[in-house]
Structures are given as structure tokens and as C-alpha cells.
Design a protein around this nucleic acid. Structure first.
Lengths: 225, 225
DNA sequence: ATTATAAGCTAATAATCGTTAGCTGTCAAG
DNA sequence: CTTGACAGCTAACGATTATTAGCTTATAAT
């Protein structure tokens, strides 16, 4: 029988520690010796669980393919494009948008697995075309498509105004992605990034919400900076 | 006397080839042997020019500190914040904005040195705090500040409407930065990215230009999908 | 022309790399 | 209790790493 107690546990810890180290320094800069000692075993013992260093890396990638987590996994509200015309989002508020982004950021940055894997792929994205494609798809396009669907529904329901939901989605999502990238390399700037995103979301909402009809007159003479 | 003929030439070629290789695979994955053979010499000969592999890397970084090139170097129109209130940008057009972005992209992607260094730093950004800071500053904050200054002037002159030039700048710049990142890993998508940026810039201009007063009525009843 | 320096080379260094062989103790199944 | 597989270990492998020593050749200054 296959007992999952000791062996599977060690195997998982190897994957965990390897991902942690790869996300810090990249695949080439991390030796199997270093992975092993992080797990608390000797390097040759790794080969009881994986037949090569490359296989460890591959297993990590394969695992995330199974998990298929995205930025959007961290959001509680989900929309599929097919359901988009049901008017669930009629009354979406500035506050709701802001909250969604906070949830997204929270998940993307504080889920260790998610954030480590993203940092690892940031380092390894140029290694081959497959990784490049995966990176763009996973960390940008999925999020843009998701929001394009959302905005398409919101436009249809009249909640926001706008003609091009794809462009709108890119403009909405791009600052979010960039702030995540900043936090990946400068975690100490998280508060600042959240603040900038709050300002972004609120400006976005006010710009495209029909409640706020923006005219040249409205912002004519500003008193002082 | 210090003759700059042969030695300085080889030294520069070492830097060039090293940067090319580092930008493809990262520092750790490139051996001095591989750099040397790209230059056309043997590995030990490298040490007549640099006393270590690390020094080659450091020299590359130091060189870009001297050059101080940014995204904005590729733009012909320059604004310093002090000159910002001179009404040079009164009549800025959608076409001008679109052209500026095209120039920016052209420079960022097709200047070999600039694009290779950026890709190298993308790989090495997590190596230490200095690189992390440099990356954010060089590839995002500078560009945001530049455009914040531009938009501040444009708001003051009434060319565009808006209250928060910093947020506006982030929203304007973020899609540009992201499209550059896509092209860095998927060069075959350049045309698509340029198209998306064109749509972004035009949407941005139309949204914030006072000529286009956008109201709920204007986009009220859309006939069909 | 002489001479010194510079820039290449080969050979060899120690260190570290990923990986294999083979031994030992643990522990669950029979 | 016996047995066998499993998961750890040490020792060692060859390959590759960055780097040094020392020789040679080309070149530039005197």
C-alpha cells in the first residue's frame, strides 16, 4: 500500500522549500544541496523523491497548472461571460470596486504559494516560450479578460459608460498588476501601493460612472494647488 | 600612455556579450567560458580586463548608471516640472499623445542596450534591495513622475480635465509599461501590443479631453452588442 | 632596435555542481 | 517475528565552475 505519511510529507516539503528558494534567487542560483539542507536532509536523499533537480522544478510548475490559481481566485465575486447579462452588477458601487481590488491584492501578495510562484516565474520567464506565454496569460490576460467581461456587463446595464470594455479592462487592471510587481520586489511599499490603487479605483469609478457627469464647467477654475 | 585601441575594444565587447547573455539567461546561468567564447577569446583572458565575473556584471550596471537612460529618453518632447506652467501643451492632440507612446515603445524595445539591460534587471531584480529600488525607479516611477508633470500642466492649461495628476499618470503609464513587459517576453506580440496601446491612448484622451463632454445620455441606448 | 607592457594562450587550481552507488536503520505488512 | 521496501546516510563520481600561474606573442614607447 502507498502510505502517504512520511514520504509524501518530505516530498511536499522539498517542493515547498525549493519554491521558496527558487523564488528568491532563481533556479540556477539554488543548489540541490541548499534545497536539501532547507528540508533538513542531505542532497543525495532528494533523489529518493525526484530523479533530478529539473524534475523538482517541473513538479512545481505542474502543481500550479493543476491549481490554476489566478489573481481572480482571490475575489469572492465571480462572473462568467455567459452570465454577464444577468443584471447582478447593476448597483455596483465605488466601495465594492475598491474592496475587490483590496481582496485581489491581499490574496496575490499574502498567499505564500501564489506569490512565491509568481516571483519564481518572473525570474524564469525568459527561459523558454512556454514560460513566457504562461506568464502573460496567468498574470495579465486572464485578469484583463475577467474584467472585460465584467465591464461589458456593467456597460450593458448602464452602470458605467464606455464603448470598449477591453481597453477599459486593460486600463483598470494595469495599475493593479504594476502595484503587485512593486510589492513583489519592495514589500515595504505595500501600504503606499494600496493607497495608489485606492485612488486609481475611485478615479476610475468616478470617471466612468454615469452618476458623476463630468463636464469642462465642473472643473473650470480651481482655486489653488 | 593609455592606448584605447585594442584593450578598450575587447573590454567593451566583453560587456556587450555579457549583457546579451545575462539578459537571456541571467547571471548565474551564464559561465565566463560562455562569455569569453562569444567574444572570441578564452576564459582566462577575460581576467586581463576584469578581475572577476562579478566585476563584469558590476561594470554593466555602473555603465547604465552613467547613461541614466529611461523610457522618457526616447521621447522628443520633454517637460520639466518647473517649466510646466508655460503653456506649451495647450493644443496637444490625440495624435500627438499616440505618437509619443509609439516613440517610447520604439525606443524601449528596439534599442538593444536599453532592452537587454531591462530584461537582465527583470531577472536579477530580487537579488538585493538596491536592484529592486532601481528597477521600480527606472522602469516605472520616473515615467509616472514625468507624465504627472505633463498632466499637471495640461490640467492647468485646461487641455484635459482631472483632479489628480499622479493617479492620471499612473493610469496612463501602467498599460504602456505592461505592454513593454509583454514584448520583452513575447516579441512576436509587438503589433498587438501597439494596437492595444493605441486604443488606450485614444480612449484616455477622449475621456479626459474637455472637447469630448461625456454624459450618460450620449451613450444611453445602444442598439445591439 | 630595444625593451617593456599588454593581451592573448595553455595548464592547472580548488571548489562546487548534479548525480550515482551502496550501506544502514526504520517501520509497516505478512 | 520475519521480511522487505523505503528513506535516510556517507562516499565518491565526473563535469563544470571561477580563477590563478606562467608562458608567449604582439605592440607601442623609448
Amino acid at each position: 500500500m502507498k502510505q502517504a505519511s512520511k514520504k509524501e510529507d518530505t516530498k511536499q516539503r522539498i517542493l515547498d522549500e525549493a519554491l521558496r528558494l527558487f523564488s528568491q534567487s532563481g533556479y540556477d542560483a539554488v543548489s540541490v544541496e541548499r534545497i536539501a539542507s532547507a528540508v533538513g536532509i542531505k542532497a543525495p536523499s532528494l533523489y529518493k523523491h525526484f530523479k533530478s533537480k529539473q524534475e523538482i522544478f517541473d513538479a512545481i510548475v505542474a502543481e500550479t497548472y493543476r491549481r490554476y490559481d489566478t489573481f481572480t481566485d482571490g475575489i469572492d465575486v465571480h462572473v462568467s461571460e455567459s452570465k454577464a447579462d444577468e443584471k447582478v452588477f447593476d448597483g455596483i458601487s465605488e466601495e465594492m470596486l475598491a474592496k475587490k481590488v483590496r481582496q485581489l491584492i491581499e490574496y496575490s501578495l499574502h498567499d505564500e504559494y501564489v506569490s512565491r510562484f509568481r516571483r519564481m516565474m518572473t525570474i524564469e520567464q525568459f527561459r523558454n516560450a512556454e514560460f513566457a506565454d504562461m506568464y502573460s496569460e496567468r498574470y495579465l490576460e486572464r485578469l484583463v479578460r475577467y474584467h472585460a467581461g465584467l465591464f461589458r456587463a456593467l456597460i450593458k446595464s448602464g452602470t458605467i459608460i464606455g464603448e470598449d470594455p477591453d481597453t477599459l479592462a486593460l486600463e483598470y487592471v494595469a495599475p493593479v498588476v504594476l502595484m503587485v510587481e512593486i510589492c513583489d520586489r519592495q514589500p515595504e511599499r505595500e501600504a503606499e501601493c494600496l493607497k495608489r490603487l485606492e485612488a486609481h479605483v475611485r478615479n476610475f469609478y468616478r470617471t466612468y460612472s454615469p452618476h458623476m457627469v463630468k463636464t469642462a464647467e465642473k472643473r473650470g477654475g480651481k482655486s489653488d494647488g
